[in-house]
């Protein structure tokens, strides 16, 4: 069994009458990437701030590597790498100077500091721009440096708060690859996002958060299965659509068929393995299929199902 790195239980934070986080519990093990998925204002940053130890919690507990953790514990803060949502860098310092500054706060100095700074620059691919001021960096480069700062202390738990916001797809892929690699090295990663695709691609497990509460948690498959929803198959087709629909309805895997203006819409328990049979049946009914589209339920649908609203507003 992999060791548990982060364990938090019963976390709660209220701002006046707004309960930003209510009874949040999360566990993340070594090498695991956990995604906290939720819309704007769901409470992701509030949750992360309490976990990192920069915001005092109203209730609950956090342990890092089994040690109790809160805002005053520097011993456990040593184990955490934190990448905040906003770009927390000095624009008038160079990339290397920014790394060295935060490295010093982590207790690095001298040759060790310089070596670690260069390693991190290499990891985030900024070695050739390290001597230039951050002000001159592109958005993606600043983001990468920003993530680099979180890696300086070789954390046990890396916490990233929406690290890909406002980043072009190429930089975004680079960032996601970086995170995956780091997790591969045994780091536990807590990652918040409101991009469903990112959570699906990157995270071993996903927690869906809305209005301060964790609504569901599990692997992507777990969550989709929980939804108990079928795949949707859309056929663009010409011919005797009614006859084809009748034939398709008799297949065991097909639970519903709709005749549309330019084709058919089917609900199928599992679309992939049944596609050949579906196409054969329509062919026999004298219908020519011009295109097929399969829509599997995704985290977006799970979210919609759980909260009754779309993930992005």
């Amino acid at each position: 069994m992999a060791e548990v790195v982060l364990r938090c239980e019963g976390l709660r934070k209220a701002y006046g009458t707004v309960v930003a986080i209510d009874d949040l519990g999360i566990e993340i093990t070594e090498g695991e990437t956990y995604g906290l998925l939720g819309p704007n204002g769901a409470g992701k940053t509030t949750a992360i701030s309490m976990i990192v130890g920069i915001l005092a919690r109203d209730a609950g507990s956090v342990t890092i590597d089994g040690q109790p953790h809160d805002v005053h514990r520097t011993a456990t803060k040593r184990l955490i790498g934190y990448v905040p949502q906003e770009l927390a860098l000095y624009p008038d310092l160079t990339g290397r100077e920014n790394l060295h500054f935060f490295g010093r706060l982590h207790g690095l100095s001298g040759r060790e500091l310089r070596r670690r700074g260069d390693e991190v620059l290499d990891v985030v691919g900024l070695s050739d721009r390290a001597g230039q001021r951050v002000r001159t960096y592109s958005g993606g480069m600043s983001r990468r440096l920003h993530i680099g700062v979180g890696l300086l202390n070789r954390p046990r738990l890396l916490v990233l708060d929406e690290p890909t916001v406002g980043v072009d797809p190429q930089s975004r892929n680079a960032i996601l690859d970086n995170v995956r690699q780091l997790a591969g090295q045994g780091m536990a990663v807590l990652y918040t996002t409101h991009y469903m695709e990112e959570a699906e691609r990157l995270c071993d497990r996903v927690g869906i958060i809305d209005s301060g509460r964790l609504r569901a948690e599990g692997t992507r498959r777990d969550l989709v299965t929980m939804l108990d929803r079928e795949d949707e198959v859309e056929l663009l087709a010409d011919g005797d659509l009614a006859a084809a629909a009748q034939a398709l309805a008799e297949l065991a895997e097909v639970s519903a068929v709709d005749v549309r203006e330019a084709g058919l819409r089917l609900l199928v328990a599992e679309a992939g393995p049944n596609l050949p049979q579906i196409l054969a049946t329509t062919g026999r009914a004298g219908v020519t299929v011009r295109s097929v589209q399969v829509r599997e339920p995704n985290l977006e649908s799970v979210f919609l199902h759980l909260t009754g609203k779309a993930l992005r507003d």
């Binding site: 701030s49 706060l105 700062v149």
Partner: peptide
């Protein structure tokens, strides 16, 4: 600026009181 950019909070997330 240091506060607005969240640099202060980031410093606080390191083992710095």
């Amino acid at each position: 600026e240091t506060r607005r950019r969240g640099i202060t909070r980031r410093m606080y997330a390191t083992p710095t009181t």
